[in-house]
Computed example of a mutant assay.
Amino acid sequence: MSYYQSSNDFKYVTTLLKYAPKETQAFIDFDHRSVKRTEGHIPVKIRELIALAVALTTQCAYCIEVHSKNAKRVGASKEELAELISIAAAVRAGATMGHGFLAMRLFDEMTS
Rank of each mutant, 00 (worst) to 15 (best):
Y4G: 10
Q5F: 13
S6F: 04
D9S: 13
K11Y: 07
Y12F: 12
Y12D: 09
V13K: 10
V13F: 06
T15Y: 13
L16C: 07
L16R: 07
L17W: 06
L17D: 03
K18H: 11
K18G: 07
A20C: 10
P21L: 01
T24P: 07
Q25F: 10
A26N: 05
F27S: 00
R33M: 11
S34L: 15
S34F: 14
S34T: 15
S34H: 10
K36E: 11
K36Q: 11
R37C: 13
T38S: 13
T38W: 00
T38A: 10
E39F: 04
H41K: 12
I42T: 10
I46D: 13
I50V: 10
I50W: 02
A53Q: 10
A55T: 01
L56C: 01
C60E: 02
A61Y: 11
Y62I: 04
C63K: 04
C63H: 00
I64S: 05
I64E: 10
V66T: 09
V66H: 09
V66S: 11
H67N: 05
S68W: 07
K69C: 01
N70L: 13
N70M: 15
A71K: 00
A71G: 01
R73Q: 12
R73S: 06
V74C: 04
V74E: 03
A76Q: 01
A76S: 15
A76W: 03
A76M: 06
A76L: 03
S77M: 03
E80S: 06
A82M: 09
E83R: 03
I85W: 02
V91N: 06
V91T: 09
V91G: 03
R92A: 14
R92V: 07
A93M: 11
T96H: 09
G98V: 07
H99K: 11
F101L: 05
L102C: 04
A103F: 11
M104Q: 11
M104Y: 04
M104H: 08
R105L: 14
R105Y: 12
L106W: 06
L106T: 06
L106H: 08
D108G: 08
M110I: 02
M110F: 11
T111Q: 13
S112D: 14
